[in-house]
Simulated assay, not measured.
Amino acid sequence: MRNVDAAGLGIGDDYPPRIMGVLNVSEESPYDPSVYDDPGEAAAYVDEDLIGEGADIVDVGLESANKSFSVLSAEEELDRLDTAVNAIESVSGDAVFSIETRYAEVADEALSRGFDMVNDICGFADPEMPNVCREYDVAVAKMASPPDLERPGALEDVDWAERRSAEWERNASYADYIYDALKQNGLTDKTIVDPAFGGWSEEKTLEDDRETFRRLREFRGLDRPMLVSINRKNFLRSINDRSTEEALPVSLAATSMAVERGAHIVRTHDVAETRDAALVGDTFARERIRDGDGIRIEELDVTTTDEARRHIERLGGDPDAATACTMRVFELTGLTRDARRALASAAADRNAVFETGGDGVLLAGKPADLSAIAAVTAERAPEFGPTERQLRDILG
């Protein structure tokens, strides 16, 4: 996993999780505590509530990304840029300042006037955005999005059959859409990937976001640091039926999990609390990087075949080898004597781990081997059929 330098701030596995606080200079933005149109008041908010609470990065939004509002043109965003520039010039604290925009023209102007990085919610839909970021040698957060400046994050509206193939679309899940969207139009050396949590279109479901969160480790296969924006999002609030105001606890729980799964930046309105939660996740995450006497050793965070496949594809290897990169472990109870014997025999033929004691059986092996073992067992012991189908569903 490569690290990224954002105006001297290290981002990646070699660094602690970074907190991105939010300042909006857009009167239509839905979260009132972060909205300011007076530069002095905005600067005080940044110093006290963002940097003062532990924000490493301050993300400044010129317009609301809420799909219910009209999209501003580049000229309209530029009209608001003076307020943003005057605000950051008045800040006394030290932070990296990010401009949230979909337009290369706005990014260019903001970077020339003191901003340090870019947050592109349209995922390089403006083809000049990567060039501008390379020219200024700045970090850029790229959110998964269609190649359309008017529809950030609306991946359900993409004709995936036309982009890839009808077969790919039939087999793809929502997280696959996210992954493919992040790859479109390429990545700069200083790109930070954002898997686009939130209600970016009417078609997107809460389960889409939950699937993306469950598969968060896969996005490490892009070999770039990862930003997540999950603060008080609906897919978390709906778990325990909380309002936005009541949703801080679920956000903090998810923050720790996201960092443990590989997120490097957490974008939030609740800086101090989110920082604490991120540090908990970081403390209990696995140690991924080691030095092997001058050779860098990185333990890839792989728990599923899909996660392994992402890394193999990145390295240009054979994706089919992913089935040999992971091991699954199951305990089965309630087996009949015939099923137990058949399972033990099939496991031995595949060199899988089979241990038994009391009523339980521990079965461990590569996913492809376990699927074959289950199929053979069902042939030899028909009562094992329902269990074989369940294992097949789990193993994918």
Rank of each mutant, 00 (worst) to 15 (best):
R151E: 10
R134S: 15
R337S: 14
S98C: 15
G21K: 01
P33H: 03
L23M: 10
V376S: 14
R151S: 06
A348L: 13
N240V: 15
R337H: 13
T333Q: 12
V271E: 00
A7C: 14
I192K: 01
A378F: 09
R286W: 13
L222W: 07
S145N: 03
P130N: 10
R296L: 15
A55C: 07
G357F: 04
R380Y: 05
G358V: 04
V71Q: 10
P195D: 04
Y45N: 07
E299N: 11
A247H: 06
R341Y: 09
V353M: 08
T101M: 01
P367V: 06
I239P: 01
M20N: 09
R210L: 14
A44I: 07
V46R: 11
E211R: 14
G12H: 05
L279H: 11
E273M: 13
F284R: 12
L23E: 09
P152V: 05
I295Y: 08
R224E: 05
D338N: 14
L222S: 13
Y177M: 15
S238D: 15
T333I: 09
R275D: 02
M143R: 13
E246F: 03
F69P: 00
D56V: 03
R220M: 13
R340Q: 14
A247R: 02
G281Y: 03
E105V: 06
E135G: 08
R341L: 14
D320V: 03
R309L: 03
R288E: 14
E245P: 01
P319F: 11
R296S: 14
T305F: 00
D159L: 09
T101C: 04
V193G: 04
A347G: 03
P127T: 12
P386W: 05
R18T: 04
G358L: 09
E246T: 04
G153D: 10
E167R: 15
G198P: 07
D189L: 02
T304F: 09
D189E: 15
A7W: 06
D306Y: 04
F124K: 01
E41G: 15
A272T: 05
D148S: 09
A42M: 01
M327Q: 09
E109G: 00
T333P: 03
S29T: 08
I394H: 02
R237F: 02
T323Y: 12
V271C: 04
N119Y: 04
R163K: 13
E41M: 07
V271Q: 00
G198N: 11
N131W: 08
A368T: 12
F69K: 15
E89R: 15
A144V: 07
A364N: 06
V35A: 06
L363Q: 02
A364F: 06
L155C: 05
A104Y: 11
D338T: 15
I394F: 07
G365C: 05
F213Y: 10
D32W: 10
T304D: 06
I88P: 07
R337M: 11
D148Y: 04
G294V: 08
V96A: 12
E162T: 12
T283I: 09
